[in-house]
Write a protein that binds this DNA or RNA. Structure first.
Lengths: 321, 321
DNA sequence: CTGAAAGCGCTAACAC
DNA sequence: GTGTTAGCGCTTTCAG
């Protein structure tokens, strides 16, 4: 790792001149420029960003906090944000938190300080933990951007209206001609969306509910018999994972989707499209989220903070009527 | 963001004393210590890591280079490495490369220099691009760790013997009683493993091949009829994705796995276990890889460089005979 | 056109 | 016990 100073010594010129050349500034005689450039090339000079940023009081890293990026919804967001950051001269640092592990969080904050100006907190953290972060993020010298969080947190927040997105989707199902929707789940955002539809007189289909333990694969499978017994013509699950569990049940019992029942999930996981049949679902506004995050990072403000919505993606698991 | 100097001024003591207290060194009178600690607490002092690391010539970030972490094999590796790094006081920086995009790579290297000491390059890059990296990584002031790469690259390499892993798996299928294996794919590592089995007289089952275009979902589906026409009792695909494509074909045509044909994939994607029936596959040695990477980062050497192997995971897509 | 020097925030050797 | 100071590698102001 060669430094500017060493290059100056090797060339016989001052640090200032070498730096002029290397940062493409004017006022250097062509001969010297040539010579210094050759030297830099020869020794593969690369400026030390830590030093430069320290001097310029600039930080071009962005911390990204996660709980679990095995959920491909998170993964897509990460992918999209990563791309956008890089295209704008920012670089992502990753922080995977374990539920409730405060030590990890503190370690990260300490090691990021002076390096990252912003930390992006993605939804997925339990609400307790989010509250903890909200309280403690003030103590660290970086700005926090909470994405799709449960309540108003941090210096900035990019909101997603899950509830209304669910409601909109249900309205669409109603218009499509479904007569009896079964909702399997208990996550607040979905549940409230379902409640909105129940209260809306314009929604004429019957709505019933089953309350599973966890919104996971296993629950989706065990709940299978109840779903079929309900007599519903369409079932909406809290998560794609859960819907896949139900798929397993139907596969084992020779039930045909969507002929016997239509299915909708939530999250648009990477595998949802390759299910048999492809699973209809609500997709996170991945691109729009990154756009807003980038705006905050670049300008320090967010002009439009109307909540974003998820997008309903009907696939073959839905039988048009 | 308060600095040591400011704290010194506020407290009335010198920078050195404040620093002594804050870094837990001795030789400070208890009264002063108390007072300074209180002040630091009050103003939420957090040391600037960029400055500290510059001074100490230390870098505790590790760059992680990827092409695509939508492949959950990569994701699992990332997860595991991330955890291990954090537990050892290192922090990951993420660099997602686009195939053949050299600009991105250079940008990353420039911005990481002085911040990261090591860069981990995960398998998944096309071999051309790997060759490019091998050539150019010398020009940057960080050490490169190539993980599971096609050939010997960089300063360090952590190897995985995919070929023998495939061969071992085929031997096991042979012992399980399968009489006709169909290999669908053309990726070199798998293909060579299959060739090993073909040459081995101890392997008595018949082995035939189909050569698809790409090892993706679509190919797995379109190839379906050929697979069924082959008369094989077990089919091995280059990727889990491809196997899932074949699943789709069977679902559409009422073919039952594993009754009519057994299926094995490669990668152990997150969704493979939740297929119907759960997909047998070869899993990457995720944990062992992180172990070795960490050893290199911590000690600067790798003691055991015998290639790692993938682990065969039989699931219900395999009909024991 | 070129160079000396200050200083970003931090650490530690070296005085007192 | 405490303070002064040099210097990590870089940028930039200010003199020549």
């Amino acid at each position: 790792m060669i430094t500017l100073k060493q290059l100056a010594e090797l060339s016989g010129y001052s640090v200032r001149t070498v730096q002029r050349v290397l940062s493409g500034q004017d006022h250097v005689s062509p001969a010297k420029r040539e010579m210094i450039l050759a030297l830099a090339e020869k020794y593969h000079y690369v400026p030390n960003m830590a030093a430069r940023n320290l001097r310029l009081q600039k930080k071009n890293f962005v911390g990204i906090l996660f709980e679990d990026f095995n959920v491909s919804a998170s993964l897509n967001k990460l992918n999209s944000l990563d791309r956008m950051l890089m295209e704008n001269g920012y670089f992502p640092m990753l922080g995977k938190l374990q539920p409730g592990n405060i030590r990890d969080f503190e370690q990260l904050m300490i090691h990021w300080s002076g390096v990252a100006e912003y930390a992006v907190v993605f939804h997925g953290l339990s609400s307790n933990f989010q509250d903890f972060l909200q309280e403690h993020c003030k103590h660290y010298p970086m700005k926090f951007i909470f994405v799709d969080s449960y309540s108003d947190h941090g210096d900035f927040s990019v909101k997603v209206d899950r509830q209304t997105s669910v409601y909109d989707m249900l309205c669409q199902l109603d218009r499509m001609g479904f007569r009896h929707l079964l909702y399997c789940g208990n996550l607040k955002s979905r549940s409230c969306g379902v409640a909105m539809a129940e209260k809306d007189p314009a929604v004429t289909m019957k709505i019933s509910r089953i309350d599973p333990d966890l919104p996971d694969f296993k629950a989706g499978e065990t709940i299978g018999p109840d779903v079929m017994a309900s007599g519903a013509d369409v079932v909406f699950f809290d998560t794609d994972r859960m819907a896949c569990g139900f798929y397993r049940y139907t596969a084992k019992h020779g039930i045909v989707i969507p002929d016997q029942i239509s299915v909708v999930g939530f999250d648009n996981e990477s595998y949802s499209e390759i299910q048999n049949p492809p699973l209809s679902t609500l997709a996170h506004p991945v691109h729009e989220l990154s756009d807003r995050i980038l705006e905050i990072i670049r300008t320090g403000t967010l002009t439009d903070d109307t909540p974003l919505k998820l997008k309903f993606i009907p696939r073959e698991s839905l039988l048009a009527k």
